[in-house]
């Protein structure tokens, strides 16, 4: 494998170039995020997101060249790529009738369409862990499903901060991220741009969550899913 080749991903606000070793570093982190959110090994996970979102391209080594092991390989599970466009979200109810999903990882802006199409098709989402991913620029509360989890996602900084199934707060994994001295921004220890945190999301180093005793943690407000 030619290690000098990088993969270049378009982002909403720029580009992200990753080498092979970076890809596996972040795939391991994504698998950790899923574990923190309570996703069990062997899970079948639907990804309702765009193809250059890390959630999608870290999904499997079959999708992304130079990635040794993606989320599916690390969890010994499966991912299904479902895209976040309305045209594709409209297909999800039919797919749910064919495949038993353990989790759906849904980009926040696609949540209303998902709910609408499932309601129209009388296709319940019961029994599926809905993971809503949201950007930090988002100012309105993020939908929280009864069995759901949320995950902050800032692609440019490769920030993936999952809502912990144990403590209910979002973990900024200590091994992967650091704070700026003023606490107003987060930076990945490996590549990635500085990610500014909204004022109401100041990380707290309060110890105590067994899922990640050294992690920074952030409390997050939410609203019930429509």
């Amino acid at each position: 494998m030619p290690n000098e080749i990088t993969l270049s991903f378009g982002l909403p606000d720029g580009r992200l170039d990753l080498r092979a070793a970076d890809l596996d570093h972040w795939a391991e982190h994504l698998a950790w995020c899923c574990t923190i959110m309570g996703i069990a090994p062997g899970a079948t996970i639907g990804v309702i997101d765009f193809g250059t979102s890390p959630i999608a391209f870290l999904g499997s080594a079959l999708l992304t060249p130079m990635l040794e092991a993606g989320l599916a390989e690390r969890l010994r599970g499966r991912v299904i790529c479902l895209d976040a466009s309305r045209e594709r979200v409209a297909l999800v109810p039919s797919i749910l009738k064919q495949v038993a999903f353990d989790a759906l990882c849904v980009r926040a802006e696609a949540v209303p369409a998902l709910i609408t199409y499932c309601r129209e098709a009388e296709q319940p989402l019961d029994g599926i862990t809905i993971i809503t991913t949201f950007g930090l620029e988002r100012r309105d509360p993020v939908a929280a499903f009864p069995r759901g989890r949320r995950m902050a996602l800032a692609e440019a900084g490769m920030l993936m901060a999952p809502e912990c199934a144990v403590c209910g707060q979002m973990h900024l994994r200590h091994s992967h991220y650091d704070q700026t001295p003023d606490g107003g921004a987060v930076v990945a220890r490996r590549g990635g741009a500085l990610v500014a945190l909204p004022a109401d999301m100041a990380p707290d180093l309060a110890p105590g969550c067994p899922a990640g005793p050294e992690d920074w943690r952030i409390a997050i407000a939410g609203k019930d899913a429509p």
């Binding site: 270049s8 378009g10 982002l11 765009f50 250059t52 060249p65 466009s85 594709r88």
Partner: peptide, 14 residues
């Protein structure tokens, strides 16, 4: 092929 894959943000559906 020894070339570099690059991707754009978003979806062909929109």
């Amino acid at each position: 092929r020894g070339a570099q894959p690059c991707y754009f943000w978003g979806t062909l559906s929109d």
